[in-house]
């Protein structure tokens, strides 16, 4: 009985997710696509929760739906206007060759999905499916944290996370190189301004909580960084261009803090005769918290800079 109910829930959820993805991608109207895509991201977070992945669900809700949504909505500002008119006439006209080509691409994509599904049937044949999960469970006590996802990210596979932070840094440098920031918004009215007075400290507090709790429960630097960035987005939307982001060299330090702290810890351990990022078990918890704090600041600074769409300009008159 219970299992049947869950199955119905799964089917409805997945049908909604696929339907939303389809609708978002089929639309020619950018605004419509973006809003459907945000709904798609929120339902994905529900799906991750259903599959017992609360860490991923938190990240999806904060980053996948929240910040990506904010980025996309900000991108609507510069969308070419003409796309809005072509909502009804889906595609103008295609020649026979083009239609044939579109069908070929569709068929190849369907074939790819089919092959992928077939390869899934081969997974059970593989024997070592739980080997890595068991290795994590066996070594979790030496990792310094008790949340297995944090242990994998910051200890067992810390090298991957270091490189991930380097990817973030590269992306934000690319954004800075592409031109000046988007124009800010006008100062919000009294209702929204007083809302931000409540919301901003609450978001900062939540970020700190998520950072701390990540050691033993769902949470961690990524979710905390995204929540902190949300505070910046809220301030920006309220017309405050300062948004708590430092300027000049301080901003550079904040953006590089994640990679920098990771490297500093790694090299210090190296100098002490341990492997690169091989924490001594007694110190692991403290070192992970240190790296995560720096990573949170770097992620938040990166995401807010990405939302602004360029290097923040020096403040002139507003406060």
């Amino acid at each position: 009985m219970n299992a049947t109910m869950l199955l119905i829930f799964d089917a409805l959820l997945l049908a909604s997710i696929i339907g939303l993805a389809w609708a978002a991608l089929a639309s020619a109207d950018a605004r419509r696509s973006v809003i459907l895509f945000i709904a798609f991201g929120l339902l994905l977070a529900v799906a991750w929760g259903r599959l017992l992945a609360p860490d991923v669900a938190l990240a999806e809700a904060a980053i996948g739906a929240g910040l990506t949504g904010a980025l996309l909505l900000a991108a609507l500002q510069w969308q070419p206007r003409k796309t809005a008119d072509t909502t009804n006439s889906e595609q103008p006209t295609h020649t026979l060759l083009e239609t044939g080509f579109r069908w070929l691409v569709t068929l190849l994509c369907a074939a790819l999905a089919g092959m992928l599904a077939w390869s899934l049937t081969q997974i059970d044949a593989g024997t070592a499916k739980d080997a890595l999960a068991n290795a994590v469970a066996a070594n979790i006590d030496a990792s310094g944290v008790s949340n297995p996802v944090t242990a994998v990210l910051l200890n067992f596979r810390a090298y991957d996370t270091l490189l991930e932070l380097a990817v973030l840094l590269t992306a934000v440098l690319g954004i800075f190189a592409l031109g000046p920031a988007q124009a800010g918004y006008r100062i919000a009215g009294p209702v929204f301004t007083s809302l931000t007075r409540w919301l901003t400290p609450l978001l900062i507090l939540t970020a700190g909580y998520l950072l701390w709790v990540g050691a033993h429960a769902p949470g961690g630097a990524f979710q905390a960084g995204a929540t902190l960035a949300a505070a910046g987005v809220v301030l920006r939307l309220a017309g405050r261009d300062q948004i708590g982001l430092p300027r000049g060299n301080a901003l550079r330090i904040a953006l590089g803090a994640g990679v920098g702290m990771f490297l500093l810890v790694g090299l210090a351990l190296f100098a002490l005769g341990r492997p690169f990022l091989g924490y001594p078990p007694a110190w692991a918890g403290a070192l992970i918290l240190l790296i995560e704090t720096a990573a949170m600041l770097a992620i938040a600074a990166t995401l807010v800079s990405a939302f602004i769409g360029g290097q923040p300009t020096e403040e002139k008159t507003r406060c």
Binding site: V56, I63, L153, V167, A171, V172, I175, L178, A306, G309
Partner: peptide, 17 residues
């Protein structure tokens, strides 16, 4: 996946820029 989500948002931001 957690790593992937963060990389995806930074790639999206770069693509939008």
């Amino acid at each position: 996946v957690l790593t992937g989500i963060v990389v995806a948002v930074s790639a999206t931001a770069l693509a939008l820029a």
